[in-house]
Design a protein around this nucleic acid. Structure first.
Lengths: 215, 215
DNA sequence: TAGATTGTTAATCGATTAACAATC
DNA sequence: TAGATTGTTAATCGATTAACAATC
């Protein structure tokens, strides 16, 4: 799909899910054809940027016509790797861990939590939906045996690096980290961290500097 | 604090919380002085970028010496608006809403959830920690009466815009949105959206394209 | 065919990095 | 003072936008 051996910039990659989401909405509205100009109006990127972005991955459009919504939606899904499913584990059955486990949208998108892991004995053995909470000591073995692709870290920042190490040693391919810390992982392991407090502090900054910005 | 009337770029603003976090860690380790070069090693930005970033807000360093960690930490806290507290409400007492309500770190940083709002009658009247779950119909009145600064939206994407509208009409200053949709708010209201699925899909992309990237 | 719109190259803009004089 | 390191200007790099020939 990707053209030649050009490196795609992270800026482009992070826009792809947004394209896909808006294309989904168009499909819901039974709109099957869209030009970069029209898409620009609803998504807020320039038409030029949209065409540049998409052309990193191939020529999905047709001159004089625009883009076929279904086709583009499915192509972006494939590019993002949403055309097949992944096995995941959630480590930490606290607030965020439970929220992720309960959030069925991720499962619908192909990210299936197969088990949760905890150190708190009161939680071990319980289930969240059909997902069992297991003893954290079993994490490594489980990842190896069940062919887990993605590890989701929902522990405190103090425990997160240890958990990541176990995951890496057990052959995990990617880590989705919610602990408020920057983890160290080898180059072959993909890491994506959600820094909730950084997001909140950014909001706080903008709140404080709003008036100045309006000057 | 901010120099003249230069506009600070979002790229810089989004790095500020990370500076603050690493400076906190240094304080925990009783390190009271740091040069941009040393900070560069632990935080992963270039020393040049660190000096550029900080100089947007003033000259916090001293030639030949470096930066005083306490001073810089507190200065960045002030810049981010973390030197005073905010009243918040959480709308939606589902998975994410409950997780946010239970996550005491935000409260410690000055973002105090004063109430939650729900449409599900089974949840109305319950408490999460000391935070009462109230009828969503009372949201607007509550925001006005209690001087709420920040509204946290944890509803479905279908309800999110309506909730945002009520918040805006009631004089909210900022919205922290967890619903997977892009909200429309007037210019004077600050909006920060956490797109969890976009983060997950980015991870998925990187997973899929890992091997190619290693070529 | 004429009109529309892409794909792609070139121009611009902005952010990052390098360099170095100022100065502690 | 000499050494270290900032603050800041200049150079580079990368991303976005504009322009337009290609073509459906």
């Amino acid at each position: 799909m990707q053209k030649g051996n050009t490196r795609i910039s992270m800026a482009v990659i992070r826009r792809l899910p947004k394209y896909r989401r808006y294309l989904s909405e168009l499909l819901d509205k039974d709109i099957h054809r869209i030009s970069s100009k029209e898409l620009s109006k609803i998504i807020g990127f320039t038409a030029s940027q949209i065409r540049q972005d998409l052309n990193n991955f191939g020529g999905f459009g047709q001159q004089g016509y625009g883009y076929n919504v279904e086709e583009l939606h499915s192509a972006i899904g494939k590019i993002l790797g949403l055309d097949h499913s992944y096995n995941t584990v959630i480590v930490g059955a606290g607030n965020i861990g439970q929220a992720i486990a309960n959030y069925t949208n991720f499962e619908k998108a192909g990210f299936k939590p197969t088990a949760m892991f905890e150190i708190n004995p009161k939680l071990i053995g319980l289930k969240i939906r059909d997902i069992e909470i297991m003893d954290a000591d079993l994490l490594g073995t489980y990842i190896k045996e069940k062919n887990i692709n993605i590890g989701i870290i929902c522990t405190s920042k103090e425990k997160a690096q240890d958990v990541a190490n176990v995951m890496v040693e057990s052959g995990i391919q990617g880590i989705w980290n919610f602990a408020p810390t920057d983890l160290q992982v080898p180059e072959h392991v993909v890491l994506e961290t959600v820094h909730l407090s950084e997001s909140l502090y950014t909001l706080s900054y903008l709140l404080k500097h709003k008036r100045e910005e309006e000057d």
